[in-house]
Amino acid sequence: EDYYQILGVPRNASQKEIKKAYYQLAKKYHPDTNKDDPKAKEKFSQLAEAYEVLSDEVKRKQYDA
């Protein structure tokens, strides 16, 4: 799945936009606030993985290549 789609940001998003999108979605899908939703944990880990790659310039360049 596309990391940009997961975070809901365009491919040319700035680091600030990526961070903002991640924090909004992380708050929304955090397992502690969605105890009754088994998919929230999965969504949250996808968000974390996408953010880890896109927030790191080197990893992001490799991902975009």
Rank of each mutant, 00 (worst) to 15 (best):
E1G: 13
E1M: 14
E1W: 08
E1D: 11
E1V: 14
E1P: 14
D2N: 13
D2H: 04
D2M: 04
D2C: 07
Y3T: 01
Y3L: 10
Y3Q: 01
Y3G: 01
Y3I: 03
Y4E: 01
Y4K: 00
Y4S: 00
Q5A: 12
Q5M: 13
Q5N: 10
Q5V: 11
I6H: 03
I6V: 11
I6C: 05
L7A: 00
L7W: 00
L7P: 00
L7V: 03
G8W: 03
G8N: 09
G8D: 05
G8K: 07
G8V: 03
G8S: 05
V9Q: 02
V9N: 00
P10Q: 12
R11W: 07
R11K: 15
R11P: 07
R11M: 05
R11V: 07
R11T: 05
A13E: 01
A13L: 01
S14Y: 03
Q15L: 14
K16M: 15
K16W: 09
K16C: 11
E17L: 08
I18R: 00
I18S: 00
I18K: 00
K19G: 07
K19F: 15
K19R: 14
K20I: 15
K20A: 14
A21P: 01
Y22V: 02
Y23K: 15
Y23M: 15
Y23V: 15
Y23A: 15
Q24A: 13
Q24W: 13
L25Y: 04
L25Q: 11
L25E: 07
L25N: 06
L25I: 06
L25C: 05
K27R: 09
K27A: 15
K27Q: 14
K27P: 09
K28D: 10
Y29M: 09
Y29P: 03
Y29I: 09
Y29G: 04
H30K: 06
H30P: 05
H30L: 10
P31F: 06
D32S: 12
D32K: 09
D32N: 09
T33I: 12
T33S: 12
T33L: 13
N34K: 08
N34G: 08
K35C: 09
K35N: 13
K35Y: 10
D36H: 13
D36Y: 11
D36Q: 09
D36P: 07
D37A: 05
D37I: 06
D37C: 06
D37F: 06
D37Q: 06
P38T: 07
K39Y: 13
K39H: 14
K39E: 12
K39F: 12
K39L: 13
A40T: 09
K41N: 08
K41W: 14
K41V: 10
K41C: 08
E42T: 11
E42W: 11
E42F: 12
K43W: 11
K43A: 09
K43P: 03
K43G: 04
F44N: 04
F44T: 04
F44M: 12
F44W: 14
F44P: 02
S45M: 14
Q46V: 12
Q46I: 10
Q46P: 03
L47I: 15
L47E: 01
L47S: 03
A48G: 09
A48K: 13
A48P: 02
A50P: 01
A50E: 00
A50K: 00
A50M: 03
A50G: 02
A50N: 00
A50D: 00
Y51E: 01
E52R: 07
E52A: 14
V53A: 03
L54R: 00
L54M: 03
L54W: 01
S55E: 04
S55F: 05
S55R: 07
S55H: 05
D56M: 02
D56K: 02
E57Q: 06
E57I: 10
E57L: 06
E57H: 08
V58Q: 12
K59Q: 06
R60F: 01
R60P: 01
R60E: 01
R60A: 01
Q62G: 06
Y63L: 03
D64N: 03
A65N: 07
A65K: 12
A65D: 15
